[in-house]
Each structure stands twice: as C-alpha cells, then as structure tokens.
Design a protein around this nucleic acid. Structure first.
Lengths: 344, 344
DNA sequence: AACGTAACCGCAAACGTTTGCGGATGATGT
DNA sequence: ACATCATCCGCAAACGTTTGCGGTTACGTT
C-alpha cells in the first residue's frame, strides 16, 4: 500500500533544503517561485514518483470532488445508461461519482442518503425509489444545504432542481399514435399509483382519449409494481375482460416486454389483436418480434443537464434557485403499433 | 453546504468543557470514559446533529473506505449487473465504490487508473478494455502495492487475483449442444483477436469440433469488435459462404442479437436454417423470437467473490498471493438452438 | 550611501480527527 | 500515614496539505 512508502511534500522539501510551502507552491506552478527551484522540485517530484495525497488536500480545502448518485437499480437499462452519461459528464468536470442503489426500497434510500452525508460528497443526484412517498430524508439533506438534483422520478413536494421529460406530452402523443392507427379501446399498464411520472403519463393517456372522444375506463388501467410476474398476470387479466383492448400503452419497456411475453404464450398477436406502445426505447426494442414502438428519452442530454445543474450549485456559493429542465422525447415507431389493416 | 455550519468535535468539547480527545473517545465508545460524560457527549452530539468529518478521519487513518471499479462500459448488461452485485457486496462491507468507464479504450483505461491512484482508493477491481494489450499501467498499479482483482476480461500476463468462469468448458458444452442437436457445419462469431476470454471460448469451440470429429475451418470464424454494424456485416458474410454454417456460436449476446437481426432482415430462419448459441444470458434472451440459447454466468456470485478477494488483500497487511476463482456456468437452452427436425 | 522594491522563500497556523503518554483524582490496602 | 493502583481525562503530536504574512536577499534608483 502507498501508506508505507508514500513520498510526501516534506520528503521533497528535505531533499532539496526547501520548505514544504515552497514545494507546494512550486508543484502548483505559483508565480512567486524561482523558475530554477520550480524546475528542481518538479524534476525531483517526477523522479521520486510523488503522488499528492488527496485526503490531505481535501481536508484543507474541504472539497472531495465527488458526487453521490442514488438510483433505484442498475438493472434497468435506463438507469444504467443514465449512470453512464452522468459519469461521463462528471469526469469531464473533474468529479468522480459514487453510486448507490436503493433497490426500489424507501428504507434503503434513506440509509444511502445517510451514507452519502457521512462520506462527504459535495452534492447528490438521485431518482426516487418506487416505494418512497415520504420525503423527510430529502428535506434533511436540503437543510444541510447539500446541492441536489433529481431526474426522472421526481416529486413536486421536493423543491430541488430537476431534469425530466415532458411525460404528459409524450404519453399524449403515444396514445394519439395508437388512436390514429385505428385503436379504439385503449388500455394502460401503469406503474405504482403514487409514482408521479407514471401518473403524468396516465394523464396524457387520458387527455388523448378525451381529445379524440374515446371513453376512459378505469377497468382498462392497471397499476403494477414493475415485477415481471405481476405484469404478466395483469396483462392477461386485461385481455380477458369482456371487450379486451385493441391497443395498450405501457409505462416502461420492461412492462412491455413482460406483457408481450405473456401474450405470446397465450397466442395473442401483436399488433393484430392488440397494439403496444411503450416508454424508454431500450436497445432491445429493435430486436423483438414484433419490434417495439417506444418513446425515446434523450439520455445523454439528460445526464449532461443533470450534472450541469449540480455544478451550478457547487460552484456558486450563494444558493441558487431550483431550476427544472424539461426535455422533449421522440416516439420511435416500430412494428408493435403498425396496424395498417385495421386503420379506418 | 455543511462547510459553513459544520459542527465539529471541538464544538462539543467546548460546550461541555472537555477536551477534543475525550469527546472523540466518548463518541467511539472507548472504555476509559466515564459513563456519565459519555452520555452527555452522545446526547449533545445528537442535539447538535454532529456529523463526523470523514476527510479528517481518513487523513489520520489513511483509509478511504472506497474502492475503484473500472469497467469497459455500462451499456452492456453484464457489466451493469456486475456493478450492481459488486456495489451490493461492497456496501455490506462498509465500502463505497466509484465507477469509471473506459469505453473500451486503452488510453482511457490508463487515464482512469491514474485518476484512481490520485483519489486514494484502497483497491481496484477491473475488467480489461477491448483495446488494451499492453499492461504497463497495471504493473504500475501493482508496484504501488495497490490491491487489485480482475474479473471476466483478464490476462495471464497480469499476476493478480481474478474471478472468471471456465470459458473453455462453457464454449465446449455450448458447441457440444449444437452438435448433438444436429449441426454439422459450425461457425463462430468471436470477439477481438487479442481478447483472452474470446480465445478461450474459441478454443473450447475448436476442441468440441475435434472431439466430435468435425472439421475446423478458419473461414467459419470471424473476429469482430463488438459493434453492431461490424457484427451484422460479418454475420451476413458468413452465411454467403459456399456452404454456409448450420450452427453458430457467438461470444456475447450482443453479437447474437445483431446477428439474429441481420438474419431476420435477410429471411434467414433461426433455428431452421442456422442454430445459434450465445454467451451472457441477458434477460432479453427470453423475450426474443426465437428465444436465445445462452450461457449463464453467475453474476451475483462473481460480484461477491470479487469483493471477497479484494477485502482479503485490504484487511491483511502482509501481501497475499494472487488467487483465481473459476466459477462454472450453465447453458440455458431455448428456441434458437432447438432443431429437433434436423437431429439425426 | 541609503533607500525602495521586486523577487523569492520560510514560519506557522489551519483543516478535524486519532492516539500515546502522562497527570490528577480518589479509593484501596498495609 | 504512605505507597499503590484504577479510573478518568487532557496535552500535544501526528496525518499531508494549503496559505496569509512576514523575512531575506539582490538589484536598481536617487
């Protein structure tokens, strides 16, 4: 370990008959050091393979140059990709990121926040767990003036910067697409009932129905918990209603995958019997048969904006007002919703 | 930020007319403190919402309780899942993990290692980038006695602990499965030619052919760079050989997905025209049509073993010998390889 | 010859902890 | 009465940096 061998600024200072402060200044290229001595210091530092001790540096500057990222889970493509783009953007800015997963659990979320608080991250980025409906832990974070930005799964009860997509519009357009392609009885596979973005999408779904004069029926709306079993069961239940839907909007691709899987096993044809439009546009969508129509979210852009908003809070020391960036989406139309024959 | 308000051990000490050392000891429950004063300290710490400064603590103990994780990319399901399980296991042990992606680039790999060295992680876990064939940066890491464990993409030129699967055996069995299901002319979509695990799998493929007295032909082996375009092109090239293969082993699911996608567009039927067996067993495999036969790697177990090996090096201060754990795999048989009709 | 002024560098404090050592206090044994 | 010993606590150094302030040179100006 470097602890036993670690060469410090003092070692260099002693070897050169200088003071630690001079060496420190020389290493950082400050102007009040004679070029010759600077050169000597730099040379020796190189030779001795000097590595500055970040811990000490951090202590005096009270900065860690790390940000905490709290995610529901990494096994969803969307969140893994967000980590991907956030890490990228953070690295560009010289920050490193420590990841924590809540596994969709509220309790783990508060524990992880506690951890991050202790480990002196400079700011946190998060997306809410499926199960959290109480925000006291978030408020605690904010009371400590911890810079915070929330993306995707947010809540209006939290006054923090956020970057999201226009879920209402996206769902409206997706539903519109189904309707214009001939669907008449629309169903919706939604997420947990207290998850705001799911409800916004549901609202978009509803508004589209209303706009086109189609009936909205609660019985065609199912709230699931994102698990495959639950989803498959509900999907089959929906299709065994007296007059089953001929078009379904699902809140995530995972829900769509499970739904399609269930349908395939029961011989329900997509899109002939029922068309499907989904959210997230995972790469997998194009590989399925039929390929899956899905709403694309600009993940790269979201990641970039998220860290931009965080940096804004980090670099300015006077508190900056919460800002919300809403990005637009794009419906990627594929086979699962192409019901030309049914069109009227 | 907590920097302006932060309550320190000294604040507690002053308020209670104690010394900092006493407070420190009281907080950590050391025995030489009178129960009454300990109680008072604990109480006040609670009231003032004292949060120990990890930076200072780290400095004196020279420990950061963080480990660095270097991955090729997070957009492959396998690596995202490994991060998932590693983070889980690390958290159990009280460590947090900072992630870095190399994006498969050698240059980024050395840069990331440099970063980690500076940021004082206690150990690093990594899987090699596609493009790295020189290991000087790894040796540098080891010369600094940085605990290291490598998983999945390793190299025999690096003397470090590693956890891998038995790639040869897995490929052998996968190929065996194809042969026993009636395939006669076997092709292989391999990874980059210098990637060890790809070659081990290729060797397993070869040995299986030999074992069954089937010919091995270089022209039926393609090395790609993991990109979709490249893969699709090669896949089609392979099928336009004079006598195209009737069974293909692909090195990763991503390669298989792209291959199947290309075949679908050209009307090549799976498994009727050509059967496919792959590696990684991504969740997507079951959703495809046909569902994809794939080798499952025990990701949870791998993550657990990886951090176990790292912890072993971290907790023991006398250097521990490199250890290699090889886990076994499981072939998940699905539709893409079920060519009953062709069986003889 | 005296002075002002750069240019260059060192002292020491600070960041918030932990920890070896020793001091004060009171109790106990003789 | 004294020595012995536990118990409880404080002093100060240490971890490796950064930084305000001041000190020393050497040089050019008057």
């Amino acid at each position: 370990m470097n602890k036993n061998t670690a060469v410090t600024i003092k070692d260099i200072a002693n070897a050169l008959n200088l003071s630690a402060s001079t060496v420190s200044r020389a290493l950082r290229g400050m102007p009040e050091i004679h070029p010759e001595t600077r050169q000597a210091v730099l040379q020796l530092a190189e030779d001795m393979d000097y590595q500055p001790n970040q811990l000490a540096k951090n202590l005096v500057k009270s900065r860690t140059k790390t940000i905490g990222l709290i995610l529901p889970t990494l096994s969803y493509h969307f969140f893994a990709s967000m980590l991907n783009s956030i890490e990228e953007a953070a690295m560009q800015a010289g920050y490193s990121v420590v990841v924590c997963q809540t596994n969709e659990s509220y309790l783990r979320e508060v524990a992880q926040i506690q951890n991050l608080l202790h480990s002196q991250v400079e700011g946190v980025i998060m997306s809410l767990a499926r199960d959290t409906s109480d925000f006291e832990h978030i408020y605690r974070l904010q009371r400590k003036n911890m810079p915070l930005v929330i993306f995707d799964r947010y809540s209006t009860d939290i006054d923090a910067s956020r970057v999201i997509v226009d879920n209402h519009e996206a769902a409206f357009k997706a539903t519109q697409h189904l309707i214009e392609n001939g669907c008449q009885r629309l169903g919706c596979m939604a997420g947990p009932p207290h998850l705001l973005i799911s409800n916004e999408r549901l609202r978009g779904f509803k508004d589209a129905l209303e706009h086109y004069g189609l009936p909205y029926n609660e019985r065609y709306v199912f709230h699931n918990d994102f698990t495959q079993e639950n989803t498959m069961m509900q999907a089959l239940n929906m299709m065994s209603l007296p007059t089953p839907p001929d078009g379904i909007l699902t809140m995530t691709d995972r829900i769509a995958f499970a739904t399609m899987y269930a349908f395939k096993q029961k011989g329900i044809r997509i899109p002939e019997d029922v068309a499907i439009v989904s959210f997230n546009n995972e790469p997998t969508c194009i590989y399925l048969s039929p390929s899956l129509t899905s709403v694309n979210q600009p993940i790269q852009e979201m990641g970039a904006q998220v860290v931009r908003l965080l940096l804004k809070q980090l670099e300015n020391d006077q508190p900056v007002v919460a800002e919300t960036i809403v990005l637009s989406t794009q419906l990627m139309i594929r086979e699962s919703s192409m019901v030309e024959g049914r069109k009227k």
